[in-house]
Design a protein around this nucleic acid. Structure first.
Lengths: 118, 118
DNA sequence: CAGAATCCATTCGGATACTG
DNA sequence: CAGTATCCGAATGGATTCTG
C-alpha cells in the first residue's frame, strides 16, 4: 500500500470538503448489504429478538443470508448476541448502544421508505 | 417469568407488524448500491452538480459505476438531469423534491457515519 | 431452535477503450 | 466534457443439507 494516512487533519486532496460523505466505507458498506438497515430497525422494534422472530419478520430471507447479516452486525458491535444455555437453545439479539443510535438515525429513512411503498 | 405483553393486532398478511420495515424493496434496494446514499447527499450539498464535480468528489469511483448510479437515481426520480446544448457539453444534476426529502432523511445517518470514521 | 457449511447462479462494479 | 460499451473478476445471496 502506497500511502496510508493515519492522522487526517484535513485531507489536502479531498475535493469534497462539504462533510466528505463520499469516502465513507466502513459502516456504509455494511449497511449496503441486503436487509442490513431493516434488520437494525426490526431488532430495535421488537426489543430482544430471537432468531426465529427475526426470520419470520422478513419471511423471505434465507437462513444463510440472515446469519451473515447478523454476524456482521454483531461483529461491528451494533448488535448484541445473548445465548442462553437452555433446551431448546435460545438466542436473543438486541441493539448495542451504537446500534440504538444507528437505529434512531435510520428511522426517518425507513419510515419514509415504508410510507411510499404503500 | 412472565412473557412481555404483546397486545398488537397481528395483521394476517404481515408477520412484522411494527412498521413493516422488512419488506422494503424499491428504495432500499436502490440505496444499497455502492455510493448511492453518498451520491444523494453530495448532490444535495454541492447544489446543481456537474458530472465532473461529482466524479472528483468520490475520487475513486469508476465512470461506469457512477453513470449507473446516476441513471438509476434519475430514473427513480430522486435526481434531476439537466443537459445544456453547449460546447463543451454541460450537464447538471440536482435533487428533485423527493431527492431533497431523501437527502434530509439520510443526513443524520451519514453525518454520524462520517463522524465515527475520523 | 439457531444456526454453520457448501455449492452455485446472479449481480455488481472496476478497468479499459471509445464517442458525440 | 460527459458519458457509453464491453469484458471480466469479485462479491453477494439463495438453496440445500447438516448439526449441537
Amino acid at each position: 500500500m502506497a500511502e496510508t494516512v493515519d492522522d487526517r487533519p484535513e485531507p489536502p486532496d479531498s475535493p469534497c470538503d462539504i462533510d466528505c460523505y463520499c469516502r465513507l466505507d466502513g459502516l456504509m458498506e455494511l449497511l449496503s448489504r441486503r436487509y442490513a438497515m431493516q434488520l437494525i430497525c426490526v431488532v430495535g422494534a421488537i426489543g430482544p429478538a430471537r432468531y426465529g422472530e427475526i426470520e419470520d419478520a422478513f419471511d423471505d430471507v434465507s437462513s444463510s443470508t440472515l446469519s451473515s447479516r447478523l454476524d456482521e452486525l454483531v461483529d461491528a458491535d451494533y448488535l448484541d448476541r445473548e445465548q442462553y444455555a437452555e433446551i431448546p437453545p435460545r438466542v436473543e439479539y438486541d441493539l448495542t448502544d451504537d446500534g440504538d443510535e444507528l437505529c434512531r438515525r435510520l428511522q426517518p429513512l425507513l419510515e419514509w421508505a415504508a410510507d411510499r411503498e404503500r
